[in-house]
């Protein structure tokens, strides 16, 4: 079907009047893994927030369509219900809201009425096991007092539980040690191997290529200064590992 996919075309977005995204085109097909790489400040997170509908980001032109549904006209909760998931780089801490209550509310919103609380708990513990998360997480408040690594694991747990159609991972790898990175990779693989997640498309936003050792992308995009300047296969990530972004910047004539 031609309207399948997370399709972004000519997307421009500003923050407080400054244009950050200067026309983004990319299409993530179901079941595919795309990596979006780029130096700090290139606009990667702005793309993630613009897709998810963060109120501080003004989309000024272009389109973002998820399996035929226009995301840009939807409130953030409706975008999630359409099948979009954003793994936050800095998720909010919400004291007093317990992890399982939040996850159950989210699961019921995204996939209404599929699971009883008992079955949900079983599912939760199963996914937590893949992530090496202690069951004591279930007694804690959402991200409250969590370490950086714990927050990232909780983001991955949410992705596993919600099994979205498209998952945008905003620097989920940053600040993680090798073991945690492996757990993130395992969670993505486990989701892709499951019935619910076998057609999930991924947009993995990262500064460093190392997460791509745990999950091989089908497509690699390089973003510099609000534009995608190059698209290629996994070898593009390897080249960035060797050479950094500077040669690409020169080669593509992107603004320094």
């Amino acid at each position: 079907m031609s309207d399948q996919g997370l399709r972004v075309a000519g997307l421009r977005a500003s923050v407080e009047g400054n244009e950050i995204l200067k026309g983004i085109d990319l299409a993530v097909e179901p079941g595919k893994v795309h990596a979006l790489m780029g130096p700090n400040g290139s606009g990667k997170s702005t793309l993630a927030f613009s897709l998810a509908g963060h109120p501080h980001y003004d989309v000024t032109a272009g389109s973002a369509v998820l399996d035929g549904e226009d995301l840009l006209t939807l409130a953030p909760d409706k975008r999630a219900r359409a099948g979009l998931f954003l793994s936050f780089q800095y998720p909010a801490a919400i004291p007093g809201v317990k992890v399982p209550n939040f996850l159950y509310a989210a699961r019921q919103a995204v996939r209404p009425g599929e699971l009883t609380p008992g079955k949900f708990r079983t599912l939760l513990l199963e996914k937590m096991d893949v992530l090496g998360m202690d069951p004591s997480f279930l007694g804690r408040y959402l991200n409250d007092g969590f370490s950086g690594g714990e927050k990232k694991r909780l983001e991955m747990l949410q992705m596993a539980v919600l099994a979205p159609k498209y998952a945008v991972l905003d620097e989920t790898d940053s600040g993680l040690d090798v073991d945690a990175l492996q757990d993130v990779g395992d969670t993505i693989q486990a989701l892709r191997a499951s019935d619910e997640g076998k057609s999930t498309g991924f947009l993995i936003i990262t500064h460093y290529p190392r997460i791509l050792q745990h999950i091989t992308p089908d497509v690699v995009h390089v973003m510099i200064d609000g534009r995608i300047v190059k698209t290629g296969g996994p070898d593009l990530a390897q080249r960035i590992e060797r050479e950094g972004y500077d040669t690409l910047r020169e080669e593509t004539g992107a603004l320094a």
């Binding site: 909760d77 999630a80 954003l86 919400i94 809201v97 509310a105 919103a109 949410q158």
Partner: peptide
Amino acid sequence: FYMTSRGIDREAAERMI
């Protein structure tokens, strides 16, 4: 925003917070 980005509607998110 964080809660609504998980599919929870705004009113419910405000109530939970």
